[in-house]
Structures are given as structure tokens and as C-alpha cells.
Design a protein around this nucleic acid. Structure first.
Lengths: 201, 201
DNA sequence: TCGCTTGCCTAATACTTATAGGTTGTGTCC
DNA sequence: GGACACAACCTATAAGTATTAGGCAAGCGA
């Protein structure tokens, strides 16, 4: 009987394509077996279980996104770097919605520590270091920027912007400008009324 | 045989509690039947199918969040209103992670149009109207603020802030200040930067 | 060529979703 | 107060998915 040439690598890659086609939450080992024209049990020689497949897809997506972001970042700083990183994420989410959803799935701590998630965190912080914020403001900024980027990518890929006839790309550029502006001129650490230091009305 | 007193209402409410306990993606009709000590088939008199249950939970969560937000908003404007709305979402996400995840699930267009999602959009826009932005900037702002709030809530409830020893509440206040500041003084057409070749969108 | 490893198989179990059709509790109408 | 109709819950059944155990054979190394 001809062999299908399965391997963990190939299965996870095919699983990622499946995720982009039907959604990450609908990835099943059964469907994967069907695509390779193979019985389900055969996959269990290469995958421990169903979760092994899905976390494999998550790790793959994190790697791919980190690679893209790193490529986009070379030689850039300031707003250009921020825009390059953010747009790498946004583009990835639009091209690979299933993989993007996979990348947002929660990992257990040890797996997360060994994943490309670490590179993402480092890149974000490196960019923000260019804005000269002290701690804890830099951490605040990392969180805000991460929230804005991933929130935007998620809302957009979930179709949340389709009700309003304003170009999503224009809102994206505006958002990047806004983030850049606020990072250059961050709010005071006092939770009181903002006095916008250094900028007259 | 004693009757369990099932109803669509009760089932969806119990489903929402189940979601908060085990995660929205692990809500099943089987588990729900188990909790009511009833056979699975019995639920199908009250629910059309499994999707009927999950979208019911989504709609419930959207309603609850909109009610909370509306309560928090009375009599407020400006940064106070922004903070009230955003914090209503954040608190809801922290208290009810499963329901919050449900609220972010995608609905088909007609269902979405009849959902409390419409109220959310109206409230956000009403708050931003106070910042006196023209179109399309107001829409850009709606998208940015929505992305930042929901991105933050999601990252936080996914444990994304647990690696860094900076209080998540402090970052939250800083982020609200930053959003308020940038809305008061929005980016025009790239202040102080040459216009870059735009990406075709 | 022998034999061993590995790749894929059949078979079996358990759980979830879903439908069809039966039985019984209970409120309502006379 | 009894009959009845409907609603609530049941049993039985079927299909899809996840997982494990054990078997056979392809094809590489000796």
C-alpha cells in the first residue's frame, strides 16, 4: 500500500492551511486525515492528540509572524518602525485569518516561554525604547500598543468595520499616527485631568 | 417523573455561567444537560441546536455589557465618559471571561443587526461626539478606541500581562489618559512628517 | 536475503450533536 | 371534577470526532 508521506511538520502545515480556509476553531484531526486520504488513527503516530495539532499551528503562526515583523523592521525606527511592526501583524491577520486566530490562542506557560511570543515582546519593546519612556510608562506603552494593534486586527478580520463606509486602511494609518503622537508626548503618570505637557491647545 | 423546569431563558443563562467556568469554547449541550440532570435530547425542545445556545449566550453577554455601560455612562462626558465605558467593558471581561469571549464571537449580519451590538456602537460614537471630531476622523477614532479597549480586555483576560510586574490597573489608567489626550489633539495629516507612499487598500 | 523499524491499517470505545417518536405531567375548558 | 391537549421529558438511533490497542507490510540496514 502506497504511503502518504505524513510527518508532524507536514500535518501542522496542512492544519494551518485548513485553519485559514475554515477557521481555526474548526480544525479537526478527522478533516486533516481526509485531506491526506488517510485514516484518522494514522495521524496519531505523528501527533500526540488534537491539542498537539492546534498548539503546533499556534507556534507556527507565532514564528511566521515574528519572521515577517523582523524582516519589516530592519533599518527602521520611530513611527516607521511602529508602523512596520503593526502593519506586519495586520497584513498577516488579513492574509491568514485562521493562523492569526491560532496565534492568539492561549498556551501553557512553559510552551509560551519557548515560543516566538518572546520575540514579539522583545521587538515591541525595542521599538518603544526609541520613544524614550521611563518605567513603568514603557510597560504601559507596550500594553497599549499591543492592545491597539491586536484589537484592530481582530475587529477588522471579524468584519467589525464593514458597517461603516470609511476605508479601513485610512483608519489604520490614522491610528498609527495617533499612537505615534501619544508615545512622543505621553500622558503624565498622574491619573488626574490631563494637562498635555509641552503642547499648547 | 419530576420536571426540571427547563426553558430557553434558563438554559442560556446556565450556558453563560458554564462559559465563565470552563471557557466559552467548551460550552456543550451535553454538559448543560448534565448540569440540569436531564437527558440531552430534552434540551432540543428549547434550543434549535448547539449554535442556538452559543449565539444565545453571545446575545445575552452583549445585552449585559450594554446595560452596564449605559448605567456607568449617565451624566458623564469627556474623559470620564470614555473611562466609564472602557472600564465597564474591562470589568465585565474580568468578572465574566466566558461571557466576554462569547460577546466577541461573530454573528451573522441579521442577528448582529438586532443585537445589543448596535447600542455599543451608538454609545461609543456618542462619547466621541464630545471630542468634536469631523468625519472621517470620528470613525477612525471609533475604531481605534474600540480596538484599544477590546484588545486590552482580551490580552489581560488571556493572561498576557502576567509576565511583567507592573500593575495592570495602572497601565489601564495610563492608556485611558493616552486615548483621551490623542482624541483631544488628534493627528492631522501626519504632523511634522513627510507624506509617505500609501499602501493601496 | 533477513529482519527490524516505521507507516499506515482495522477494530473498538467513548463522547458530542442531532432527529424521530413515545409517554406522562399539568393547566384549562366544560 | 374529569377529559383532553399540549408541553416537557423520555428512549432509541445515527453520524461525526477523539483516542487507544494491536496487526501487517514496505522498505531500509546488515
Amino acid at each position: 500500500m502506497a504511503r502518504a508521506g505524513l510527518s508532524r511538520e507536514r500535518l501542522i502545515r496542512a492544519g494551518a492551511e485548513l485553519a485559514d480556509e475554515v477557521g481555526f476553531d474548526r480544525v479537526t484531526v478527522s478533516e486533516l486525515a481526509r485531506r491526506f486520504d488517510v485514516k484518522v488513527a494514522s495521524l496519531y503516530s505523528h501527533l500526540r492528540n488534537s491539542a498537539d495539532l492546534t498548539t503546533g499551528i499556534t507556534l507556527l503562526a507565532l514564528e511566521e509572524m515574528a519572521d515577517r515583523a523582523a524582516d519589516a523592521l530592519v533599518g527602521l525606527a520611530g513611527r516607521d518602525a511602529l508602523a512596520a511592526l503593526a502593519t506586519a501583524y495586520r497584513d498577516y491577520a488579513r492574509e491568514h485569518p485562521g493562523r492569526y486566530a491560532a496565534a492568539r490562542a492561549r498556551l501553557d506557560p512553559e510552551t509560551a516561554a519557548g515560543s516566538a511570543g518572546v520575540r514579539h515582546a522583545r521587538m515591541t519593546r525595542a521599538i518603544l525604547r526609541g520613544y524614550d519612556l521611563a518605567e513603568p510608562e514603557e510597560t504601559h506603552a507596550v500594553r497599549m500598543v499591543g492592545a491597539a494593534i491586536h484589537g484592530y486586527a481582530e475587529l477588522e478580520s471579524a468584519g467589525g468595520f464593514e458597517h461603516t463606509p470609511v476605508d479601513a486602511g485610512a483608519s489604520w494609518e490614522w491610528t498609527l499616527d495617533a499612537l505615534d503622537a501619544v508615545l512622543r508626548n505621553p500622558p503624565t503618570s498622574r491619573p488626574g485631568r490631563p494637562s498635555r505637557p509641552g503642547r499648547p491647545d
